[in-house]
Amino acid sequence: MLHEGVIALLLILVMVLAAWLEPGFISVGAQLELSTHAFELALLALPMTFIIIAGGIDLSAGSTMALASVTLGLLHQAGTPLWLASAAAVSVGAAAGAVNGIFVSAVRIHPLIVTLATLAAYRGLAEGISLGRPVSGFPEGFQWIGAGTVLGVPVPVLVLIVAVMVAGVVLSRTVAGHWVYTIGGNELAARHCGVPVGRVQFGLYTLSGMAAGLAGVVFAARRNTAKADIGAGIELEVITAVVLGGVSIFGGRGTITGTVLGVALIHELRELVGWHWRRDELILIVIGVILVGSVLLNNLASRRRA
């Protein structure tokens, strides 16, 4: 709870700074429009929160996103109806996640190693089946998923709001959510308590793949292009956001609220620095400093209390 408070405070500080420096930045219109930039980051951060709380990690999310988008593109090119192609793309994402899940839960290889390998393998698969070529020219109706608005709110943001609410409820109010914490807290103990550890892990990685698949589809709709190099490096941004939000990298601790705050902080910082200082390299430095600073601050505060 303490960490979330610190991040919320930081977020408020950033917004106050923004209001002082750039009044135009904090207008509702600008914020709504900019919010679409954080869609992939936020969507992938939700399953990552679950996975890290359960003591795992998924480095392959960005590559899975590319694989799904390429699947969508190729099927669309081959004349498959778009709803079917989208469903297939999300399924491919889920399947990619399931492969990670099997290696982690059944073969029981450390998730960092599994997803480090599939990070390369899925990206390579996407490059291979697409031969590096992009597919574009999606119809208007499909582009609505990525670029349309309902009552002024972009559709991806609506998707995100629903996803956040579902994730929040599942993690804090259901047995499955409780299992996730138990596994992350002490896996051996969880097994002894009858928690279906393997099934939960398998489910989490599959879900992560599915979210990445969805992100790939929305990306294609938003940018009207499906290609093999999208989402490169996004996994590190996602992990940064999740950890910034107070999820313990050792597992067992964290909340969806924290993750949402972490994503929001990174997003607002990135947009503000880009808006005001217009130096891309500065964004890297600021985010890195905030990440390590927030953990240090938290450690310092908890030491004092203890």
Binding site: T240, L284, G288, L291, L296
Partner: peptide, 27 residues
């Protein structure tokens, strides 16, 4: 020091350094 004295998990500390050092290099 970040990992031991600062008690920042190494993957987090070095993830932060990964982005910071790249930004500094560009500068």
């Amino acid at each position: 020091l970040l990992v031991t004295v600062g008690r920042v998990p190494s993957i987090i500390a070095t993830l932060a350094m990964l982005t910071i050092l790249r930004g500094v290099t560009e500068f």
